[in-house]
């Protein structure tokens, strides 16, 4: 995975509360056993009119000034609902690199980090201010997410907090699995001790 230091791009201020992953990508759009090729299904239910592939002009992403958006803006409880990582893969496939929201659903948050998308939590008032500023001229007024510095630049700098591990994983583009496997001796030692403590689990029925 590519490392992330800072990104500047067009923001898409949807600002929706409780934006669920069914809306980010409907289940019927998850057609392949694959993490790529999902951009077309992104927001399909609200992006296309009448169930056909006709862009609905009422949806912000279909307007020319937002078409190149790479910073998604949502309200509270962003990415709630289904655990489908396809929601994040579809965002990444379209070109999104960061999501700004008031709060995140846990699974969606972790899926973002696992796929190089920066989840940025900001107070609602800050988000509303950024959204107003962006909407005046979306293509000119681009938003910068500076992960190393821990702030968003958009009509001023707005500091955000992110867990140190998530920050490091995103910046270095690390594979969490490889990182954990460095602790293999610890895991093996735990298993050994656990087998003595909870033998019932290791000897449990095997069907």
């Amino acid at each position: 995975m590519k490392g992330f230091t800072a990104h500047t791009g067009v923001a898409l201020p949807l600002m929706t509360d409780n934006m669920n992953t069914d809306v980010i990508i409907p289940s019927r759009e998850m057609k392949r056993v694959s993490k790529v090729g999902l951009a077309d299904g992104l927001f399909a239910n609200i992006r296309y009119a009448d169930g056909k592939r006709q862009p609905d002009p009422a949806f912000l992403l279909n307007r020319a000034e937002y078409a190149d958006a790479s910073v998604l803006m949502l309200g509270r409880n962003a990415g709630c609902g289904s655990s489908r990582e396809h929601a994040v893969w579809a965002l990444a496939d379209y070109g999104f690199r960061a999501v700004l929201a008031e709060s995140f659903a846990t699974i969606f948050h972790d899926n973002c980090v696992a796929n190089g998308i920066v989840p940025v939590a900001l107070p609602r008032a800050t988000l509303d201010r950024i959204a107003d500023w962006v909407m005046d001229n979306p293509s000119e007024r681009q938003v910068t997410v500076d992960l190393s510095a821990g702030h968003v630049e958009a009509d001023g700098a707005h500091v955000f907090e992110i867990a140190p591990l998530a920050q490091r994983m995103l910046i270095e583009g690390l594979s969490p699995i490889d990182l954990t496997l460095e602790d293999r001796p610890l895991i093996d030692a735990f298993t050994e001790a656990d087998r003595a403590r909870r033998g019932w689990l290791y000897r449990a029925g095997q069907g």
Binding site: S83, E85, P176, T180, I187
Partner: peptide, 15 residues
């Protein structure tokens, strides 16, 4: 509940 990447993690590293 977890995403697919975390699932791979749990499968590969039991943690």
């Amino acid at each position: 509940g977890i995403g697919s990447t975390d699932c791979e993690h749990a499968l590969a590293a039991r943690t």
